[in-house]
């Protein structure tokens, strides 16, 4: 029961802040709404018994990525969006495309949910996840570190001052 209350409260915050992020004209405010949405997602991960993922969400997307986003907004000082660019002709096409995608997407999700097992199993702990990441998932885990290193080097190479 408490779980349901928490879920609907957090879900409301997420949907409201995502919409606010989209319609906000000021970039810094937009980033702050994104921060709120990402932190709320972490609460939902905790509700799904994924404690480690909840913390990871707080540190990486909510912590590191928003800080970098604020830095880029400050460094590039983008122009404040005009209201005209919020409501333009392509918004209509985009909305039509999203609605067209949403129907088959929701249909597929509903059919998938019907096949899910309903028995409740005890949640896997962070310890189990650590053992799994070092055991059966060791290869993708190492690959992820290579991807991160490549992204780091690439980002430094791209963003450095040209000589």
């Amino acid at each position: 029961m408490t779980g349901l209350v928490v879920f609907f409260a957090v879900a409301g915050v997420i949907v409201a802040s995502s919409v606010a992020m989209l319609v906000s004209r000021d970039f810094v405010r937009s980033v702050l709404f994104l921060l709120l949405a990402l932190c709320s997602f972490s609460a939902l991960y905790a509700l799904l018994d994924a404690t480690f993922l909840a913390l990871l969400q707080l540190f990486l997307p909510a912590g590191a990525v928003t800080v970098v986003l604020v830095f880029v907004v400050m460094l590039t000082r983008p122009k404040v969006a005009d209201y005209r660019t919020l409501l333009q002709r392509q918004t209509l096409y985009a909305a039509a495309a999203v609605v067209a995608v949403s129907a088959p997407l929701l249909d597929a999700l509903m059919r998938m949910v019907a096949t899910l097992p309903t028995t409740v199993t005890p949640a896997a702990s962070t310890r189990d996840l650590a053992i799994a990441l070092m055991g059966p998932y060791a290869a993708p885990f190492e690959l992820a570190s290579v991807v991160l290193l490549a992204a780091l080097v690439g980002a430094i190479y791209l963003a450095r001052e040209a000589e």
Partner: peptide, 10 residues
């Protein structure tokens, strides 16, 4: 218990 989902999500 959600192990696979957690690993993929990581």
């Amino acid at each position: 218990g959600g192990l696979q989902g957690m690993a993929l999500a990581t």
